[in-house]
Simulated scan of single mutants.
Amino acid sequence: MISGDGSTQGGAAEFTAETVGAVLQAACPQADLEPSGAELVRLGSNAVYRLAGVPVVVRIARDAGALGEMERAVRLARWLEAERFPATRVWGGADQPFVLAGRVVTFWESVQDREEYGTAGELADLLRRLHWLEEPESLRLPNFDPFAKLSGSLRRLVGVSGVSGEDREFLDERAGRLQKEYDRLDFVLPFGMIHGDANVGNVLRHRDGSAVLIDLDGFALAPREWDLVLTAMYYERYGWHTREEYQEFVYRYGFDLLNWPGYSVLADVRELMMVAWMGQQVATSAQSAGEFARRVQSLRTGEGRREWKPF
């Protein structure tokens, strides 16, 4: 459903707590919800609010062109619910998403009143089950092209204060080299539906104690290795997972990506996507700017990845 004041997507205001708060105030009545007392949980790729008094989470997309993606996420959530797959659920029966002031807004059932993440083993269980599902054509999932996504992220770094021309040139050159290496990869897992951003940060503990998968807007068709690479990287490169956590993930999914010859290339591509995303955050805080500089230096030298901080 599209509603609002007629603002164009290209005319959306700067993405700040103040501007997204105004969008929240306008959007909640569209779903017969009250915005008073809402808590801003996160301000990143999306603004995420938890409403007061009702188990509802509101997501407001930073990307003003995210309408098609979020329409697909809503269709996907309703299909996963019909399949009884443990994933986040759309709130209510109203048509979604809404568009107000050039922003795309969706409403979701809150998993619980606080953020409690699942384990690497539970992520493996969810991915194994997800990868067994056969998606209907009606979902119209896109083929995942990591370099289309990466190119867009790198273009958005132009003109960003705190990202030098030298840094952008280095990242562009690295992307070009990696695309050639990626095109030569021999994937061994089946091609099919993936989550697209599979990591423990997207697995939440439900009120009933079960683990559920969230953030459905990155679903696509791709080699399943994409859904395994972040957990492998978080262990092998950054030390964000322990050896025991990673071994549990491998045991429960049934495949160790670190033993696949293409792992390092896939990890380099995924890592560059992470760095490009961080570059878009440098103006938001000194912490983000420092993390971007740290990550670019690591790519230049091949050292210091254990000093990266998760965001």
Rank of each mutant, 00 (worst) to 15 (best):
Asp5Pro: 08
Gln9Pro: 10
Gly11Asn: 12
Ala13Met: 03
Glu14Gln: 12
Ala17Pro: 05
Val20Ser: 03
Val20Asp: 00
Ala22Val: 10
Val23Gly: 00
Ala27Gln: 03
Cys28Glu: 06
Asp32Ala: 15
Leu33Phe: 01
Leu33Met: 05
Glu34Pro: 00
Glu39Lys: 13
Leu43Trp: 10
Asn46Gln: 09
Ala47Arg: 01
Arg50Leu: 13
Ala52Gly: 08
Gly53Arg: 08
Val56Tyr: 06
Arg59Met: 10
Ala64Pro: 13
Gly65Cys: 03
Leu67Pro: 02
Met70Asn: 11
Met70Arg: 14
Val74Gly: 07
Val74Phe: 08
Arg75Leu: 12
Leu76Trp: 03
Leu76Thr: 08
Trp79Phe: 05
Leu80Ser: 03
Glu83Ile: 01
Phe85Trp: 08
Pro86Lys: 01
Gln96Phe: 01
Leu100Met: 06
Leu100Gly: 02
Ala101Gly: 06
Val104Lys: 03
Phe107Pro: 04
Glu109Val: 09
Ser110Trp: 04
Val111Glu: 01
Val111Trp: 05
Arg114Val: 11
Glu116Phe: 03
Gly121Ser: 09
His131Thr: 04
His131Tyr: 10
Glu134Arg: 15
Glu134Trp: 00
Glu137Asn: 10
Arg140Thr: 09
Ala148Cys: 08
Gly159Phe: 09
Ser161His: 12
Gly162Arg: 03
Gly162Trp: 05
Ser164Cys: 05
Arg168Ala: 06
Arg168Asn: 02
Phe170Leu: 09
Phe170Asp: 11
Asp172Pro: 00
Arg174Val: 12
Arg174His: 11
Ala175Trp: 02
Leu178Gly: 07
Glu181Leu: 14
Glu181Lys: 13
Tyr182Asn: 07
Leu185Phe: 05
Leu189His: 05
Gly196Arg: 09
Ala198Arg: 02
Asn199Phe: 14
Gly201Pro: 01
Leu204Ala: 04
Arg205Cys: 07
Asp208Asn: 15
Asp208Trp: 11
Ser210Thr: 11
Val212Lys: 13
Val212Met: 10
Asp215Thr: 12
Arg224Glu: 09
Trp226Cys: 08
Trp226Lys: 14
Tyr234Asn: 11
Glu236Gln: 12
Arg237Met: 14
Glu244Asp: 14
Tyr246His: 13
Tyr246Val: 07
Gln247Trp: 06
Phe249Ser: 05
Tyr253Gly: 03
Tyr253Glu: 04
Gly254Met: 10
Pro261Lys: 04
Tyr263Trp: 12
Ser264Ile: 04
Ser264Leu: 11
Ser264Tyr: 07
Ala267Met: 12
Glu271Arg: 15
Glu271Asn: 13
Met273Lys: 14
Met278Leu: 15
Ala283Val: 08
Thr284His: 10
Ala289Leu: 14
Arg294His: 09
Arg295Met: 14
Gln297Ser: 14
Gly302Ile: 02
Glu303Ser: 15
Glu307Asp: 15
Glu307Thr: 13
Pro310Trp: 14
